[in-house]
Design a protein around this nucleic acid. Sequence first.
DNA 1: GGGGTCATGTAATAGGTTACATGATTCT
DNA 2: AGAATCATGTAACCTATTACATGACCCC
Lengths: 212, 212
Amino acid sequence: MAARRKVGNLLGLAVLAYLSRAPMHPYELSRTLRDYGDDRSIKFNHGSLYMVVQQLAKAGFVTELETTREGQRPERTVYAITDGGRAELHDWLRELVSEPEHEYPNFVSALSLIAALHPDDAVERLRSRLTGLAARRAEAQKLIDDSLAEGVPELFLIEEEFRVAQLDTEAAFVERLITRITDPVAGWGPGWAQVHAAMTAQAPPGPAEPQA
Amino acid sequence: MAARRKVGNLLGLAVLAYLSRAPMHPYELSRTLRDYGDDRSIKFNHGSLYMVVQQLAKAGFVTELETTREGQRPERTVYAITDGGRAELHDWLRELVSEPEHEYPNFVSALSLIAALHPDDAVERLRSRLTGLAARRAEAQKLIDDSLAEGVPELFLIEEEFRVAQLDTEAAFVERLITRITDPVAGWGPGWAQVHAAMTAQAPPGPAEPQA
DNA sequence: GGGGTCATGTAATAGGTTACATGATTCT
DNA sequence: AGAATCATGTAACCTATTACATGACCCC
């Protein structure tokens, strides 16, 4: 899948993006990414950053520019983007924007197996999810508002706006799902409970289930 | 994060779910998961399955039930879920349903860095994304329709319905984004182009940029 | 001046993906 | 009967995450 790219980790894309503005050493990258909140949109951790920078170097997308030392701190190696790196940055970004990828969000996985819960249980958990979703939505929205108030251009907040839109959709979906389960006239509850009982039953007596 | 679970891979959850219905050997699991289309919702690959089953065994969630051999084929080890496995299955599912997790979809990452593209380029790629989204939506919807026609209860199609809802939201968002960029009176295009020019500028002449 | 946190990086471990291997079955 | 695909599993490799180290700065 991502095997065609020499470096597959999206953290590498962020590194290329920041190095395209100015050379930096890894720690500075780490700090900058954190400061600009990119760690909300790109999975980040300290150890991976060094790994990714090495991979980028091996792939020729960045080069070691100089090595400086201040006092007795460890040496800091400053990296700069190369022309190849710039090309990779643009090509990669274009691909990510233009081609939707099949992904596996946790909630989708959970939904695909939710029949293994008793319907009453499922409804309770779905209700609980709603409050969590509201909290996350509020958090994202606050981040947007605060940033706008600080003068950050909306261009740099699109991803949070997208998150808000998705959270809204998810909340609406969950609410509707709850009503579809609990609806007194056509609700799935009873049928589901039967399926669940059958699934839960250990089928100890009788012959094993026939294969399809 | 997922370090509290002995087995973190969601494929393990699917294995527990299927083993809770009947004991199986790994290849049968593999086949069943594929047949029921669970590989659309849970990242699946052949190698990982064996790994996960071993992990589940080590954690005590499943046990080796028997080892059979047919003809000269390799031995097949049949696994059964344990009481601990059943508990883990329910606890894990409940957690996944009730607690939204912070995740990192590719498109969110891409949006967070999209300013690195020229606005015209971005718009073109966003348009292209729209057609991809439509295709995926159609595919998911067809799967739903076909399954319903075959008599599959809607309960087992929730995750595809959710996918459709998300795809719709994403498409609407992308369309709106395009108009926000290209709007002739208040569009971001010009401002973005400036930012982009400044970012792209290589600052080759003159002294190096001062560090913050 | 001793205890925390910052700055900076490396090494060890664990997890997942790809590639490999091989007998059986089916198709032509 | 040879080719392709299925059935079944193992091993090697790569990637990512956690843990470890250590000097500098800051606070009380």
